[in-house]
Nucleic acid binder design. Structure first.
Lengths: 146, 146
DNA sequence: TGAATATTTCATGATGTCAAGCAAATCGGT
DNA sequence: ACCGATTTGCTTGACATCATGAAATATTCA
């Protein structure tokens, strides 16, 4: 069994650190091209799929709801998102991407090279192996993707 | 060849997103146990290996040097880091971890379960495969680890 | 009615950028 | 070798974003 100090494990951990760094670089770069911050791009991506109450956005982002207020404020100011009342519960405000917001989110997804470029060098079989290893690494506790 | 929309590639990208999220959770949690922010923990980790000029810390963090000033200020206030003059160049200030800082950095590394826990389920052979796939994913452009 | 929920506001702090400033090193022309 | 101009390293200040926590408000639920 591997201890945490064996060279192979250490190298894998280093590589994962490099993947994390690379992921953020790409994400922030793509966001910046649309004058968005990473957090704004992430929320816009969520809302481009479906409107969400503020509270649920906070859960997805793992942050306080009061924080989400500001992020949505800034997206709303730029016309990418709008607040709608929830007909079922008047306490709730649904944040929804506008048409412009959905377009921006699509462009952002397309610009995110992290998906294609680094994986392009791997064959289908290798990608399948990678998928299985990552799945097992993340274990059962990892339901929802980002 | 895989397009960016084939289901396998998409799942791998999702899994990588999950790994990134998990990595940060673990890192920030470990840092918070020592009342450190993620950025502070990262800098302290760097400085526990060797003293660095402010400028080089900024390069490692990919941020402006003026930002590093504040981070080092806060670490210095808590006695984890000290500024020393560089004998070779009097413009330069070397940030160095104090004895307390090195101890904190060591405890932090030990508390970082991301290294052991998720990888513990993989055999040596599987870890080797994972290493090779990650290496190829990152390509040649990925010299320095985090 | 009273407790719980959803959102916002306010205060505060960490992190990030950029522009401006100072001190020290380096360069180029004489 | 000298001296002025530029460059380099760091800090400061102003400002925006992101994050937390406490308090206020409105609405729902028991």
């Amino acid at each position: 069994m591997a201890t945490r100090t064996d060279p192979l494990t250490l190298e894998v951990v280093e590589l994962i650190g490099a993947v994390v760094a690379r992921y953020h670089e790409e994400y922030d770069r793509a966001a910046a091209e649309h004058s968005l911050t990473g957090a704004q791009a992430r929320v816009l991506g969520l809302l481009s799929l479906e409107p969400l109450p503020m509270r649920k956005i906070a859960v997805r982002l793992k942050c306080e709801p009061s924080n989400v207020t500001g992020i949505i404020d800034r997206l709303e100011t730029r016309g990418l998102v709008e607040r709608r009342p929830d007909p079922a519960d008047r306490r709730v405000k649904l944040a929804a991407a506008t048409e412009t917001g959905r377009r921006t989110a699509r462009e952002l997804r397309d610009a995110l090279d992290f998906a294609r470029e680094p994986l392009a060098g791997l064959s289908d079989a290798e990608r399948a192996v990678l998928r299985d290893l990552l799945r097992r690494m993340l274990g059962e506790g990892a339901e929802g993707p980002v």
